[in-house]
C-alpha cells in the first residue's frame, strides 16, 4: 500500500523527471530541435553574411528560427506517449493536471536549452547588437514560456492525428501569431538598447498571454487528454 499521498507538485515532477530520463536515454527531441535550430541559423547567417541587417529584421529571423525549431520537437512530448502505447497507462493512473504541468516543464526545459545554445550563436553569426542584454533575456524567457504554454496543449490535441507534424504547425500558428508579433517588437527594442518604459507594453502583453494560455490549457487539458 502506498506509504503516503503525493500532491500535484510531486506528481507533476514525476512526469517531468520521467520525460527527462527518457530524453536523456533516447535524445530524440533534443537532437531534433538542436539540429533544426543550428541548421536554420547556419543557412540564415551564411546567406546574409555580416550585412548589418536592421534590428527588426534580425529579431524576426531570430524568432522564426526558434518558432520552427519548437515546431520540430515540442509535440514529441505527447506523440511519443501515443506511438509507444504508454498514453493509456498514463491516463489510467495520473491526474491530467499533473500530466500537463509535467509535460509543460519538460517543453520549457527543452526550449530553454535550445535558446541557450542558439542565442549566443545568433549573436556571433549575425553580428547583432547586444543592446540591453538583460531586457533581451527577459523577452527570451517570456517568449519561451508563451510558446510552450500554447504549444503543449496543441501537442496533446494532435498526438492522435495521422499527420501530426503538419497539423501541429497549422494549429499552433494562429495562436502563436500574436505573441510572435509582440516578441519581434520587444526583441527589436531590446537589441536597440531601448529603455524599459518603451518595451513595457509588449512585455505586459507577453506576460498576460503566458498566464492566459497556461490557465486555459490547465482548464481544457483534461478534456483533450481523456478523448
Amino acid at each position: 500500500m502506498p506509504a503516503k499521498s503525493a500532491g500535484l507538485v510531486s506528481k507533476a515532477f514525476a512526469v517531468f523527471a520521467k520525460d527527462i530520463r527518457l530524453e536523456l536515454r533516447t535524445k530524440y527531441a533534443f537532437n531534433t530541435i538542436l539540429m533544426f535550430g543550428v541548421t536554420t541559423l547556419a543557412i540564415v547567417s551564411f546567406s546574409l553574411g555580416q550585412s548589418g541587417l536592421p534590428n527588426k529584421l534580425l529579431a524576426a529571423l531570430f524568432w522564426i528560427i526558434i518558432f520552427f525549431s519548437a515546431m520540430a520537437a515540442l509535440a514529441q512530448v505527447f506523440i511519443r506517449e501515443e506511438e509507444t502505447g504508454t498514453a493509456l497507462a498514463l491516463k489510467l493512473t495520473a491526474d491530467p493536471n499533473a500530466v500537463y504541468l509535467g509535460k509543460l516543464f519538460f517543453n520549457l526545459t527543452l526550449l530553454s536549452l535550445l535558446t541557450g545554445i542558439i542565442t549566443p550563436l545568433f549573436f556571433i553569426f549575425t553580428d547583432a547588437p547586444t543592446g540591453d542584454l538583460w531586457l533581451f533575456i527577459l523577452v527570451l524567457v517570456l517568449g519561451v514560456i508563451g510558446l510552450c504554454g500554447a504549444t503543449t496543449l496543441v501537442a496533446a490535441i494532435i498526438s492522435k492525428a495521422a499527420v501530426k507534424g503538419t497539423l501541429f504547425a497549422v494549429l499552433s500558428f494562429p495562436i502563436l501569431i500574436l505573441p510572435l508579433i509582440m516578441l519581434v517588437a520587444a526583441t527589436d527594442k531590446a537589441l536597440s538598447g531601448a529603455a524599459f518604459s518603451v518595451i513595457a507594453a509588449p512585455i505586459q502583453g507577453l506576460i498576460a498571454y503566458a498566464v492566459v494560455m497556461i490557465t486555459a490549457s490547465l482548464m481544457l487539458f483534461r478534456f483533450v487528454w481523456r478523448e
Binding site: 499521498s5 503525493a6 512526469v15
Partner: peptide, 8 residues
C-alpha cells in the same frame, strides 16, 4: 506509476 497515481 506509484508516484503519479498519488502514492509513494
Amino acid at each position: 506509476f506509484a508516484t503519479v497515481s498519488g502514492g509513494h
